[in-house]
C-alpha cells in the first residue's frame, strides 16, 4: 500500500486555504496543491496527480458535490478518493455526501493538529475496502 502524499485541496475561502495548507504541510508533511474552485480543480488535477482530493462543499460556481461528479466522469480522475469538508456537518448531510461516493467527511471547524491524521485514517480505511 502506498503512502498518502499528494493532496489536492479545493477551497474558496483564502483564510481557510492558508490554515489548512499549513496544517497539512507543516503538521502532516503532505504535498499540497490548492485550488480556489471546482473548475480549477478539474483543470489542475490531471497535472498534479493527487493521491486524495480534499473538497470543500459550498463553493461559488461548481460546488463540492458537482466537482465530485465531474471528477467521477473523467476516467483518469475517477478513482482518486475524495474527502469532503463542510460547515453543514449535520448527520443527514453527511450521509448524503457519503452517498455521493466520498470516502469521508470532515466537519468545519476542523482541528488543524489532527487533520492530517484524520486524512491518513480515511486513506487507509479506503485501502482496507
Amino acid at each position: 500500500m502506498s503512502q498518502l502524499q499528494r493532496i489536492l485541496y479545493v477551497e474558496d475561502d483564502p483564510d481557510i486555504q492558508a490554515i489548512a495548507r499549513l496544517a497539512l504541510e507543516k503538521v502532516g508533511g503532505f504535498t499540497v496543491h490548492v485550488c480556489a474552485c471546482g473548475e480549477a480543480a478539474l483543470n489542475e488535477a490531471p497535472g498534479f496527480a493527487p493521491d486524495l482530493i480534499l473538497l470543500d462543499v459550498m463553493m461559488p460556481g461548481l460546488d463540492g458535490p458537482g466537482t465530485l461528479k465531474a471528477l467521477r466522469a473523467d476516467p483518469n480522475l475517477a478513482t482518486i478518493p475524495v474527502v469532503f469538508m463542510t460547515a453543514k456537518a449535520q448527520p443527514q448531510e453527511l450521509e448524503q455526501l457519503l452517498a455521493l461516493g466520498a470516502v469521508g467527511v470532515i466537519a468545519k471547524p476542523f482541528d488543524p493538529m489532527t487533520l492530517a491524521e484524520q486524512l491518513r485514517e480515511l486513506w487507509s480505511s479506503r485501502s482496507d475496502d
Binding site: I19, A20, A23, A87, K108, P112
Partner: peptide, 27 residues
C-alpha cells in the same frame, strides 16, 4: 439559522484552526 450557522462557522474554522496550529506547536 442554517445559513447563519454556516456563515458563522466559516470564519470560526480559520480562527480555531489557526489557534490550534499555534497552540499545537506547528509554528
Amino acid at each position: 439559522v442554517s445559513t447563519v450557522s454556516h456563515e458563522l462557522r466559516t470564519p470560526l474554522t480559520s480562527i480555531a484552526a489557526a489557534l490550534g496550529l499555534i497552540q499545537g506547536g506547528a509554528m
